[in-house]
Design a protein around this nucleic acid. Structure first.
Length: 320
DNA sequence: GAGGATCAGCATTGTGCACT
DNA sequence: AGTGCACAATGCTGATCCTC
């Protein structure tokens, strides 16, 4: 009977709709009352659901230990009943969760590792020590399977090293900063940038350097003129480089001649001197930041062993 | 080939809610 | 009041890739 009625309603949906609309138009008060009843019913449902949640939560909080024990037993039972099926079902659920929280979780793992890398390192060292041969065999198998890839990576590395040596650059050493050092750096930066200078101290500093406001000389007209010339030159250079309406060669040459004419006599000499001065500053900074002796950890199995990089046969020792 | 960083995946435990 | 289960989170281990 139910099925028959459902089919009938489906067949006559348009008719029912018309009939309802006509009835509602004739009895607006009935329609309103119906709407109110419906809204009230929904509200009640929501309230009931909420109170169920609250009481469930209360019950859970009151019987937490019991519930944990129950859940533990339930899981053991399920596992015993059907180990394969249970594991598979669980894996699906976990997979779902993992897909949804992949980035978040990985970020968390990275942060944890950064906070305390020793934990993981110690475990890795122990593992390597216990499975040295196995690991080496795996490495060899990987090499056998990916020989070209490994060789290409080695070539790329050697090329880079060669370029570095020719350019006279210091060795490139990537290393993470230990937690303690990171903390100290942050604290120092905070102390430096957040420090408040009392007005009288600022005044004292200025006096000591002959920078008191009264003593500041007006900027010489010549310096102002040079600054304005340089600014204009930079603007023109920028326009030439970016505005295609200046693509015409003759006009470009003309503009350059104009720029040259604008420069005061001897500007090339002065520019070279400035260049040399900037170079000297750059070198100083470079020297200060250079890693002279890159940090090394002793060999994890044999702390007395020389580092492979120091081996005369190791191509990586080329920078020594 | 050593050792580090990162990530995936399984194990374990905790939490909350629907349902009986 | 109690059960059952999905989702959430963390622990632990090993795989893979990277740098040197």
């Amino acid at each position: 009977m139910r099925e028959y009625k459902r089919a009938w309603r489906e067949r006559n949906a348009a008719h029912i709709w018309e009939y309802r609309a006509a009835y509602d138009a004739e009895h607006p008060d009935v329609k309103r009352a119906e709407a109110r009843r419906y809204a009230e019913k929904k509200r009640q449902e929501r309230r009931r659901k909420q109170s169920r949640q609250v009481s469930s939560k209360k019950y859970y909080e009151a019987n937490k230990a019991k519930h944990h024990e129950y859940t533990r037993q339930w899981r053991l039972r399920k596992l015993a009943e059907d180990p394969e099926g249970y594991r598979a079902a669980r894996a699906v659920i976990q997979r779902r969760w993992y897909e949804k929280h992949r980035d978040e979780r990985n970020a968390k793992l990275r942060a944890e590792h950064r906070e305390n890398p020793e934990l993981k390192r110690a475990a890795a060292r122990a593992y390597y020590a216990a499975h040295a041969e196995e690991q080496k065999a795996k490495r060899r198998a990987y090499y056998a399977a990916n020989r070209e890839k490994v060789l290409a990576a080695n070539r790329a590395w050697k090329d880079r090293e060669t370029r570095r040596l020719h350019a006279g650059l210091p060795p490139r050493r990537l290393h993470t900063t230990p937690v303690a050092e990171r903390r100290a750096n942050t604290a120092a930066a905070d102390a430096f940038f957040a420090q408040q200078w009392p007005a009288e101290e600022v005044a004292a500093l200025r006096r000591r350097r002959g920078l008191s406001l009264e003593a500041v000389e007006p900027v010489p007209a010549e310096v102002v003129a040079r600054f304005e010339r340089d600014s204009q030159r930079a603007r023109i250079e920028h326009t030439l480089a970016t505005d295609f309406s200046y693509a015409d060669r003759a006009r470009t040459a003309e503009a350059r001649r104009y720029l040259a004419a604008q420069q005061p006599r001897g500007w090339q000499i002065r520019a070279a001197a400035e260049e040399a001065r900037m170079d000297a500053i750059g070198k100083q900074i470079n020297n200060r930041l250079r890693h002279r002796e890159p940090p090394r950890r002793p060999h994890h199995l044999d702390p007395a062993a020389p580092h492979p990089m120091l081996s005369p046969n190791n191509p990586m020792g080329m920078n020594r």
